[in-house]
Amino acid sequence: MLSYIAKRLFLMIPLLFGITLITFTVIHLAPGDPVEVQTEMSLKSSAQARDNLKKLYGLDKPLHVQYLDWITRFVKLDFGTSFVDGRKVSNKILERIPITLIINLLSLLLIFLIAIPIGVFSAAKQYSLFDKLSTVFVFIGFSTPTFWLALLLMILFGVTLGMLPISGVQSIDVSEMGPLQRGWDWIRHLILPVGISAFGGIAGLSRYSRSSMLEVIRQDYIRTAKAKGLTEPRIMYRHALRNALMPVVTILGLSVPGLIGGGVIFETIFAIPGMGQLFYSSAMSRDYPTIMGILVIGAVLTLAGNLIADISYALVDPRIRVKE
């Protein structure tokens, strides 16, 4: 097992190198640089001032030198300073991670709690009314733009019913609240964002666990269990379910990039100060160091997710380890 993990870790090194190289190339070959963005605002900025700014940011050096500089610092987890406010990129990202992480973990939890029972029940009762309804739900879930759903729910719960706040993670008067009230206020702010970010995932995962369950039900050992005269629930929920859920654990790891990337739109809609919103504002102001930092961290988290998925799969299914 340890050698399997070591091998997987070793394979990640060239991938990491490629990721940083692509990120760097994409950002730097694009026309327009941050100096232009900063100086086009004031007519007074001379060519001299522009050169000074370029020197300050290291933009006057050849590209490969800039890349080497950046990668050397990157290995030491130093992503440089933001072009926008001069703060350290690592600090800017670090302070945004918790809220994004909390929302993603909560929505993952919600996805698993809702999607797996839906998938398993519709497989166990294939072609039943429940199965058909859940299939309809899955297709609608796949096809709904989540930001639109967010808008509709904001209108319904925020504007029409006035039940839930539609912006930020805390009310303006939060400092006057007691700790209990404050917690409740925080939960109320998270209900819509978490629910909406889970929506698409529920559709996907319930479809996935349904087909996984259907595949297992057709296996020989299930027929054997039936022939032995075991009861239907015992066959379904003891013999079939466990095997059907094995591939589902890998989905957990594979859903990381979607969750991180999808955050951009709904964090912007709900004004949640997370990674997505930071990325959006950095992209708008061409803040190269922050953009590169988040892109690389996003990719590293994805690789980590894949690794965890593979390892957990190898843990539950020994055949994988032996084959490798």
Partner: peptide
């Protein structure tokens, strides 16, 4: 490598720059 990037981030970065 391409699959490791959160696609929406990559798209956003390129479009915001172009």
């Amino acid at each position: 490598i391409m699959l490791a990037f959160p696609t929406f981030f990559l798209i956003l970065a390129v479009i915001a720059i172009l």
